[in-house]
């Protein structure tokens, strides 16, 4: 269970292969949903970077996702930029705002950070309503959709799907570079033991802010893409639950696996769709159970336990460093400081 081996080849290859084969297998409307999943996947990559690689829990990823989406929409609607050209700006703007959120995080940890970022997620839709002069308030904003060029042989959906995949590929590429470099090592040191890391001269501030900046940039890119795909956004799309959805995607896929981010994204896009027909509450029930069960099973997955091994054997889907870094409790040793 080595968290440093980020890009486990088996699941990554599998996800890539499935992603490339989809256009030949899935009907166009499904392709659209998969495109949406890809943009969530990009946001989940960002969450994984924070939670999995630097051990900080941020519950505002949905809000950052929304900021990216609004950046794209505003640049397109108010400034007439080409939607695709707005994407880098969406990433940069969100990244800056993410750093602003990250600044207090330099002093906050664990639960405190969770509480504050949960607050940010809750306030975000209200903020959008308040700033209606630029966000369009309740009515939201409609953006131009980039049409497939004439030379493109496939459908419009395929064009957008291709665009999403390119964004995802760029994200994965950048993230890998980041994690393999010095900053990545800093982040891991930070996650595994902040005190020791700091006493060894790791620059805590720099690593934490870098994690927030990169994570937010990914959320922003995903959000911008979401806006382009949907063609319309409103505060309704970015309720606090969105942040929890993204967290669920991250946890289900495995928070230190890049392939897992996209598997988790597919999960959060398709499960509600399938379950709402049966009962509107079913999706939530499954989400809740998944969050709880994954945490418990992942814990048991610590090297050597049979459950962990058999799950690993399952095509490596669950191949990840679990959240828990502490060995299980000894009998009669519970709770603690």
């Amino acid at each position: 269970m080595n968290g440093t081996r980020l890009f486990q080849s088996a699941p990554a290859a599998l996800v890539t292969a499935v992603a490339l084969c989809l256009p030949f297998l899935a009907p166009d409307f499904m392709l659209f949903e998969f495109s949406i999943a890809v943009c969530y996947g990009i946001a989940i990559l960002g969450l994984n970077l924070l939670l999995g690689f630097s051990g900080q829990i941020c519950l505002a990823q949905g809000a950052l996702f929304g900021i990216g989406a609004y950046a794209t929409a505003i640049l397109n609607v108010n400034f007439g930029m080409d939607p695709i050209a707005t994407l880098p700006f969406a990433a940069i703007i969100t990244s800056l705002i993410g750093v602003l959120i990250g600044l207090p995080a330099l002093r906050l940890q664990g639960l405190q950070l969770a509480i504050v970022t949960f607050g940010v997620a809750s306030a975000f839709p209200q903020l959008l309503l308040k700033m209606d002069w630029i966000t369009g308030g309740v009515t939201g904003l409609a953006t131009d959709q980039p049409l497939a060029p004439k030379w493109f042989p496939g459908s419009q959906e395929l064009w957008l799907y291709g665009l999403s995949l390119i964004c995802a590929a760029i994200s994965v590429f950048m993230l890998r570079r980041l994690l393999r470099g010095d900053t990545g090592r800093l982040m891991r040191a930070l996650r595994d033991n902040p005190l020791i890391a700091e006493s060894l001269g790791v620059n805590l501030t720099k690593a934490r802010l870098a994690a927030f900046a990169a994570s937010s940039a990914l959320a922003g890119l995903g959000g911008g893409l979401f806006c382009i795909l949907n063609g319309f956004i409103s505060p309704q799309s970015f309720l606090p639950m969105k942040s929890i959805d993204i967290l669920i995607g991250g946890i289900v896929g495995g928070i230190t696996s890049m392939a897992g981010a996209f598997i988790g994204a597919v999960f959060i896009v398709f499960v509600p769709g399938w379950t709402t027909d049966i009962n509107p509450a079913l999706g939530g029930l499954i989400y809740g159970l998944c969050l709880i069960a994954m945490m418990m099973v992942a814990r048991q997955g610590i090297a050597g336990l049979p459950i962990g091994r058999s799950l690993q054997a399952l095509g490596g889907i669950f191949n990840k460093k679990d959240l828990s870094r502490v060995p299980g409790p000894l009998p009669g040793q519970l709770g603690g400081e």
Partner: peptide, 21 residues
């Protein structure tokens, strides 16, 4: 009970989603 705080936060969020649903 011995897991780090992120795990517990995620679990209680799971409780939140579960009971609401």
């Amino acid at each position: 009970s011995k897991a780090p705080v992120e795990t517990i936060v995620v679990i209680t969020l799971g409780l939140f989603v579960f009971f609401q649903s």
